[in-house]
């Protein structure tokens, strides 16, 4: 591998992790009982996304400025979710 990836695991290893996590999530969803599988599957999805972001998209070595460009929108998505929740959930009760 090139000097650029000398620090931290190489791309191949990240790729292996991702494949393992993907297979694991399919396996988990077919084996675990109802509420647990959803949580587990989403935890695995988040883990995969974090791996891609940190290593493939280099967030690990990026500056705070780029980080904020990613996490502020993410925060706004959460805001949108919370703001929408009472309205749409109304039909539940």
């Amino acid at each position: 591998m090139a000097a650029g990836e000398a620090h931290g695991p190489s791309n191949v290893i990240i790729w292996v992790y991702l494949v393992v996590l993907a297979i694991l999530s399919v396996f988990v969803s077919s084996v675990f009982p109802a509420p647990a599988d959803t949580i587990a599957v989403f935890a695995l999805a988040i883990a995969k996304a974090v791996l891609v972001l940190l290593y493939f998209m280099h967030l690990r070595v990026e500056k705070i400025f780029i980080h904020s460009l990613f996490f502020i929108p993410l925060l706004l998505v959460v805001v949108l979710y919370v703001g929408l929740m009472p309205d749409i959930m109304r039909s539940m009760y």
Binding site: L80, L84, M85
Partner: peptide, 25 residues
């Protein structure tokens, strides 16, 4: 490109939020 991705996060974020909420109810 990161600014562009930031706005893309909002596009898919909005769509996914709608889906998840309607799915929950």
């Amino acid at each position: 490109i990161w600014w562009f991705l930031a706005s893309e996060v909002m596009v898919f974020g909005g769509a996914l939020v709608s889906f998840i909420l309607l799915r929950l109810v």
